[in-house]
């Protein structure tokens, strides 16, 4: 299985949404996809039509010492979704301690999943710094770092790169700009700076700010169906295509 960790150093820049839409676009291309929410906030489950409270899932079962294999759901698109689960406060702290002691816990767990070798796992994470995101980074074959073309994303770019370097994943990390909006004055300046620092690591697929993205969530429809000619759809298709090529080259 090819594992992709979707991380970011900032909150609210569409990391979870991006994960969900990527999963759905990859599934539409007949890929076997596992979407794994490794974020205690359980936001990804919203995209799969599940409640974020009283949710069964990986962390919940793991901390209770139960088998977690049957906590996964399958949706109409054929995506296997494994939620984080909603453990109580104590359980969550325990879980945190458990995985802190074993930096490769997540990696080991994913390897136990019986999915085809060609399957793609997309792991959503909380924003850095976070032990959960760190686990995902350690497990990942490819790290997709989501940034926005704004000042705070740029300010946190160096710490982010440092984390990835220390995890030994700098060469497997690619950056994708989300919420791109050329009409904003700072957009091009920040992009120029980022291009200067990241070079080829900054993917040319800028995912544009497009209201069709949240609207499709509200309409409970996949983005490709809801806005087939939307710019964000187009950009995400480009990103999905690039990912598939990259995976094909790496495996």
């Amino acid at each position: 299985m090819f594992k992709i960790a979707v991380i970011s150093a900032n909150g609210g820049i569409g990391r979870t949404t991006l994960t969900a839409h990527l999963a759905s676009l990859l599934a539409k291309r007949s890929q076997s996809v596992l979407a794994l929410d490794f974020d205690p906030n359980n936001l990804l489950s919203l995209h799969f039509g599940l409640p974020s409270t009283e949710l069964d899932g990986l962390a919940l079962r793991a901390v209770r010492g139960q088998l977690w294999q049957d906590a996964a759901f399958s949706n109409a698109d054929g995506i296997t979704f494994l939620p984080f689960g909603a453990p109580n406060e104590n359980e969550r702290l325990n879980f945190g301690r458990q995985i802190s002691a074993d930096p490769h816990w997540l990696s080991d767990q994913i390897n136990k999943i019986n999915l085809p070798a060609a399957a793609i796992a997309l792991i959503d994470t909380p924003r850095l710094p976070s032990i959960y995101a760190q686990q995902a980074i350690n497990a990942a074959d490819l790290v997709l770092a989501v940034v926005a073309a704004d000042a705070s994303s740029y300010a946190k770019l160096s710490p982010l790169r440092e984390v990835l370097k220390q995890s030994g994943k700098a060469n497997d990390t690619f950056y994708v700009v989300n919420y791109a909006d050329a009409a904003r004055r700072l957009h091009n300046d920040i992009v120029t700076l980022m291009q200067h620092e990241l070079g080829d690591r900054l993917l040319p697929y800028f995912v544009h700010h497009d209201e069709a993205v949240p609207e499709s969530l509200a309409a409970n429809s996949s983005l490709a169906d809801y806005a087939p000619h939307g710019q964000a759809t187009h950009d995400l298709q480009g990103l999905a295509g690039w990912l598939l090529t990259r995976i094909a080259l790496k495996t």
């Binding site: 009409a183 700010h209 806005a227 000619h229 939307g230």
Partner: peptide, 13 residues
């Protein structure tokens, strides 16, 4: 080209 509409939608064209 990218067309930004007033309602926040963005079209690829």
């Amino acid at each position: 080209a990218t067309l930004y509409l007033a309602n926040g939608q963005t079209l690829q064209c």
